[in-house]
């Protein structure tokens, strides 16, 4: 399974993602510079975290006009797997591959900590190695992570089971105290209606090796691998 890691000016988790694919998954991986528009031959694209274009104006707003973005859209329209992490999620929102928008954390503070994520839908190419209701320990590090969508969008997300991860407590309860950033209904990650594009604020690439303290993030990458090998996803 060939992965591409898209690099924008200001991306800073590109190496982390690359390493997980190359050294942990042991699959082929290449960087794709944002000025390139060729994403042929890849089976999955990762939009990594960071501060593309310095987060100026709005997070992800300027990255939207990078040449690579039109190719990412076409790739997603063709059913290719796209994983956007943190700033990558913010970019997916700005380019319209996912619905909603990201607001500044309600606390007005940059939050950098491990959080609990409840798996809400394991029938996606990103969560097929998880169990519904399972709690994953994954770190977050962001200033604009309060997911927002209007009521109609939220209802559609719920109806189609597009909310994939929610912030929860140790017992897996989705409660206000477990919400680190003021995200609407504790939403931490969503897929598009087709299910082939996932955006999530937490960083699975930072917890995919034993020495980093958690292996829970690896389940997401392994799910993508399993999905590619048995491409009968909903």
């Amino acid at each position: 399974m060939r992965f591409g890691v898209v690099v924008f000016p200001g991306s800073n988790n590109d190496h982390d993602c690359y390493r997980v694919v190359e050294d942990v998954l042991e699959e082929p991986v290449e960087y794709i510079w944002h000025q390139d528009s060729d994403v042929e031959g890849f089976d999955a694209l990762i939009l990594p975290g960071g501060f593309s274009y310095g987060d100026y104006l709005r997070t992800g707003a300027i990255a939207r006009f990078s040449p690579v973005v039109e190719s990412v859209k076409r790739f997603a329209d063709g059913g290719g797997l796209v994983l956007g992490i943190c700033n990558g999620f913010q970019i997916l929102l700005e380019i319209g591959l996912l619905p909603g928008a990201m607001l500044r954390n309600q606390s007005l503070k940059f939050v950098c900590q491990y959080v609990n994520l409840r798996v809400e839908n394991n029938e996606t190419p990103f969560t097929n190695q998880c169990v519904n209701g399972e709690v994953l320990r994954v770190p977050i590090a962001h200033n604009e992570g309060a997911y927002f969508a209007d009521q109609t969008t939220l209802e559609a997300l719920r109806a189609n089971q597009q909310v994939v991860f929610s912030y929860c407590d140790d017992a897996g309860r989705v409660v206000e105290e477990a919400n680190p950033n003021g995200a609407l209904e504790n939403i931490a990650g969503i897929v598009n209606d087709r299910g082939n594009v996932l955006g999530m604020m937490p960083h699975p690439e930072r917890c995919s090796e034993e020495m980093l303290g958690s292996l829970d993030g690896l389940k997401i990458f392994r799910s993508m691998l399993a999905a590619a090998k048995a491409p009968a996803t909903p």
């Binding site: 104006l57 709005r58 707003a61 300027i62 939207r64 006009f65 929102l93 700005e94 619905p99 909603g100 928008a101 607001l103 927002f148 969508a149 209007d150």
Partner: peptide, 8 residues
């Protein structure tokens, strides 16, 4: 196109 995000 750029200066505002119509969602918010």
């Amino acid at each position: 196109k750029l200066l505002s995000n119509p969602v918010i």
